[in-house]
Structure formats: structure tokens, C-alpha cells
Amino acid sequence: MNGLFSLGSLGNIDFSFFNWLLVRDFLLQGLLFSLALTAIASIGGLLLGTLLAIARLSQRRWLSALSAGYVNGMRSIPLVMVILWFFLLIPLIIGQPIGANGSAVITFTAFEAAYFAEIMRAGIQSVSPGQRAAALALGLTPTQSLRRVELPQAIRNMLPVLLTQTIILFQDTSLVYAIGAYDLLKGFDTAGKNFNRPVEAFLLAALLYFVISFSLSSCVRRLHARCSQSGSQSLSLTHGTSP
């Protein structure tokens, strides 16, 4: 044992194996899959989540209960278990094997829908009831009022939260490791094994995830600051009763 930090082992760190060929052969495919998974799951999850939120707020008891059951169920199970469940069940249901990547896309869309549903529910409830009353008084049908008046405001009010959830989603995609899908982390893992440089590979993986997540969350923060500055007037219009 030679101290807390041994300079000898620090000296063994060697990034020279890292070059364009490695990026092309191991990382690019994984990075593209992680980004595609994030994009598909966030768009699909937002659509499905909005439907779930509308169902949750519906007057029909059974519809509301069904949506609540789905959302609370998904949110109380670890994501890794949800990934394993879907990987096990989808082939049983459709009767043929499905690749890890395909399974991951379906899983993340279904899982994120539950989280986006809660955000959208808060968003719809943040629009003052007067908006709906006015829309109905103008002769819009309830569906039109929802689509043209309430949802656009709900999405705008919730934009920072939705984007933050998408960054969390991007980080969570690394969990597809559990079923062996080839994502960004798996790319670094494979490269590290092939070149016998796992330490450097995982350090670079952490750095890349940090750079992507940090720059995205800085953008969200700036957007949030701009919204709350310029939005103060429109906010006081949408929240008629806010102090």
C-alpha cells in the first residue's frame, strides 16, 4: 500500500488508444442509438403521456382510475425491472423474438409516458379554468378547447420541466446495459475491453455524459430564466389568481 493516491497507477493512464477509428468503430453507433432512443422515447412518451393526463383528468371514473393505475404502477417499479419485464413479455405477446434495441425503444416510451403524464397533468391544471370556460363560451367543443387553448399553454408552462425530464431520460438510457442493447455506455465498455483499457474508457464515458447533460441543463436554465422574465406578463394573464 503506497498512500491514498499512487503516482505509479496514475502514470499508467494512457489515452493514446483513443482515436478516430475507435470512435467510428465502437462509439458512433452507440451514441446514435442513445440519442435516437432519447428522441423517440421523449416524443412518444410526451404524446402517450398527454393522453394519459387527459384520461386522468376525465370525468369518467374508470378511465381516470385506469390512467392513475398505469402511472403509479410504472413510477413505483425500478426502471431496470421495467426494462427486464418488457424484454421478457414482448416476445411472449407478439410471438417472435425482438432485439434488445427494439425492446428498449418500446420500454422507454411506455415508461417515460408515466412521468410525462404527471408533468402534463400539472401543466393542464396550471391553466386557469377561465380559459376553458371562455373557449366553450366562444362555441369551441371541449376537444377543440383542450387542443387549441389548454394544451398549448400547458406545454409552454411546463417546457423547462419537460426538458429536464428529457435530460434525465438521456442519462437513464444507459440502463439498457441490463439487456445488452448497444448504447453509448456499451460502446465505451466494448472499446475498453477490446483495447484492455477499461479505466480510460469509463473515464471518457463519464466525461462525455457529463458534457452532454451539463450543456443541455445549462440551456434549460437559461430558457427558464428567460421565460420567467418575459413571461411575467403572460403568466399573470394565465394565472388570474396568482398573488
Binding site: Q171, S174, F202, A205, A206, Y209, S213
Partner: peptide, 13 residues
Amino acid sequence: GFRNIPLLVQLFL
């Protein structure tokens, strides 16, 4: 630092 790196990657670190 701890918020912007996925938990699984931190575990590998």
C-alpha cells in the same frame, strides 16, 4: 458533477 453523470456510469467509476 453527481447530477450530470448517469448513476450506472458513476457505479462503474
